[in-house]
């Protein structure tokens, strides 16, 4: 599989490390239900068959974290974005910072 790093260009997946679902967001630690929310954040995952947003790290390249939209059935990659940009976009819509 090859991933098109928005900074470095297309590279083989041997240059990247996989973390997991990018749709889960670190909860607000001040929330009254923080214990449950963090539990879900750490452990609860959907097992998506189809397009999924995932976090990948360009270990052997520019050290950027990426949000990769990949079809888990075919490994087709539809979109790759810098995680930092996605995180900023998310913060604009809802302030989730601690």
């Amino acid at each position: 599989m090859r991933i098109n790093c928005p900074f470095c260009g297309e590279r083989g997946n041997d240059e990247f490390s996989y973390l997991g679902d990018a749709s889960v967001v670190r909860p607000d630690p001040a929330s009254p239900s923080a214990a449950d929310e963090f539990y879900a954040f750490a452990y609860e995952r959907r097992n998506v068959a189809g397009p999924m947003q995932e976090l990948w790290y360009h270990t052997a390249g520019c050290h950027a974290w990426l949000v990769v939209t990949r079809d888990t059935r075919t490994h087709e990659i539809f979109e790759v974005k810098a995680a930092q940009d996605v995180a900023f976009g998310r913060q604009k819509t809802a302030d989730t910072t601690p």
């Binding site: 490390s17 973390l19 670190r26 976090l55 790290y57 270990t59 050290h63 950027a64 974290w65 810098a82 995680a83 930092q84 995180a87 900023f88 913060q91 910072t97």
Partner: peptide
């Protein structure tokens, strides 16, 4: 060493980009 760097970059870029 490598794992911690990766973790710190995750915190910087993904958790707290601000």
């Amino acid at each position: 060493a490598i794992k911690v760097l990766q973790h710190l970059e995750l915190c910087r870029q993904w958790y707290w980009p601000e």
